[in-house]
């Protein structure tokens, strides 16, 4: 045990020293004229991106359009995580949760107050989540944040009414389907662009399908892909919770 700690300490000191050494070379914190902040790329995004995408939230514009390919794979990362967790810990088969609850489930008394409060709160959370998804163009938010909130509304149901109750609303099979659907919406949007003769994820050409101008098409497509992201994130966040809170048995739970 001791040598491991010593080795770790040595690694940490060497790496930390290296990083501190490099820090002296970095521009000051908050310097608007540092190479990163005054670069052509950053200036271009700030000055020009709204004119060509109509999206005031620069983060959303860069995330869903300029670096949309990154974001697609970010969604895939979530998807991989969900499936990986299912394959590591899950039972394999996509079966419906058992009709009879296991022992720990029976013994637990579910508090009426929490259940009723949860019933009241869950729809509000979900509506707010939808707002976050849809309003990502104008304010902080978007597919990820909204998706996480949607997923956590199901987690809330699982926490108050028990995991089987939540799994009735979102079974394992349905969650995988939704996650796949989310990635399909995103990647499919890209594929449609390819089918119309442009490069992958070049939303501009979609105006042929959706009408309007190319700028409007970019604006709308960003919303579409955000919805795809939200589907995947919602389903996978819930599945991660469901698997981890029940050690893969998909019943019992916290």
């Amino acid at each position: 045990m001791k040598p491991m700690k010593l080795a770790a300490l040595l690694t940490v000191i060497v790496t930390g020293g290296l990083l501190l050494f490099a820090t002296s070379d970095l521009p000051d914190w908050g310097d608007p004229l540092s190479p990163a902040n005054a670069s052509d790329l950053s200036t271009y995004y700030i000055q020009d991106s709204r004119d060509v995408t109509e999206v005031p939230n620069l983060v959303t514009a860069v995330l869903a359009d300029y670096r949309g390919y990154d974001t697609m794979f970010e969604t895939v990362v979530i998807f991989v995580a969900g499936l990986g967790i299912l394959s590591i810990l899950g039972q394999g088969k996509c079966e419906e949760p058992l009709a009879q609850p296991v022992a720990s489930e029976q013994n637990r008394e579910r508090d009426m107050i929490t259940i009723i409060t949860c019933r009241l709160v869950v729809p509000i959370i979900q509506i707010f989540a939808l707002y976050v998804i849809a309003h990502g163009h104008y304010s902080p938010g978007g597919g990820f944040q909204g998706g996480v909130m949607l997923g956590s509304s199901f987690i809330l149901i699982a926490l108050t009414s028990g995991l089987p109750d939540a799994l009735k609303r979102m079974s394992q099979e349905r969650a995988i389907f939704l996650a796949g659907l989310g990635v399909l919406i995103y990647a499919g949007t890209g594929l449609v662009c390819m089918a119309l003769g442009r490069n992958f994820l070049d939303y501009e050409i979609l105006h042929k399908l959706m009408g309007g101008t190319g700028v409007k098409a970019r604006y709308d497509s960003m919303l579409i892909v955000e919805i795809g992201v939200a589907f995947t994130v919602m389903a996978i966040m819930f599945i991660i919770y469901a698997v981890l809170s029940s050690k893969g048995r998909m019943r019992g739970g916290l």
């Binding site: 990163a36 983060v59 967790i85 990820f144 991660i240 981890l244």
Partner: peptide
């Protein structure tokens, strides 16, 4: 500057995915 924010949204998501996977393996 919006670029680091965009990148870090991705990194946060990657982080939670790795954490979930690692917790599953730990279980």
């Amino acid at each position: 500057n919006p670029i680091p924010h965009v990148l870090m949204l991705t990194a946060i998501v990657v982080g939670v995915s790795t954490l979930g996977m690692a917790l599953a393996i730990a279980q």
